[in-house]
């Protein structure tokens, strides 16, 4: 796929640059764009915050393309091996006192994407997310 791609360094400030790139290149409906942006922000934040090591050449490449009428994103990083799909999604909050203040990234990624796949490829983490138009 890879109609267009961007490479990000191990710095959370890179997410702003990624969002500008996505906005300029997505070519999708508003619904699909919003879901892609949410999924990408959650995945890339998690990778930069926990997977990459600053100053050691950590990089995330985001590739954007189309497959079977759906938008497809590949997120490839050279950080520590990590399959986000192995993590259980937290339950949605039900009361303020017991609510967890974090950990909802994977839940939002699963909700936003039509499908998510992970593979370890040539020493890199590769997360592939597809976004098909949802019925109105």
């Amino acid at each position: 796929m890879a109609d267009t791609a961007i490479t990000l360094g191990a710095d959370l400030a890179e997410i702003a640059r990624m969002n500008l790139w996505l906005e300029a290149n997505h070519g999708a409906s508003e619904d699909v764009f919003e879901r892609m942006k949410l999924c990408l922000n959650e995945a890339v934040e998690n990778t930069i915050r926990y997977g990459l090591k600053s100053g050691q050449g950590g990089k995330v490449e985001v590739r954007l393309g189309q497959k079977g009428g759906c938008a497809e994103i590949e997120i490839i990083d050279n950080g520590v091996e990590f399959d986000p799909l192995e993590r259980a999604s937290p339950e949605a909050m039900t009361d303020l006192e017991s609510a967890s203040i974090g950990g909802f990234g994977i839940l939002l990624m699963r909700e936003a994407a039509t499908s998510l796949e992970y593979e370890r490829r040539e020493g890199r983490n590769v997360l592939t997310a597809r976004f098909c138009q949802r019925e109105a």
Binding site: L38, N41, E97, I101, F104
Partner: peptide, 19 residues
């Protein structure tokens, strides 16, 4: 214009502190 989980975290943290 955009809310991610990191924003949810801030809102829940604030709600808990005020509560």
């Amino acid at each position: 214009d955009f809310l991610a989980s990191v924003g949810i975290r801030v809102l829940v943290k604030t709600a808990k502190a005020l509560g």
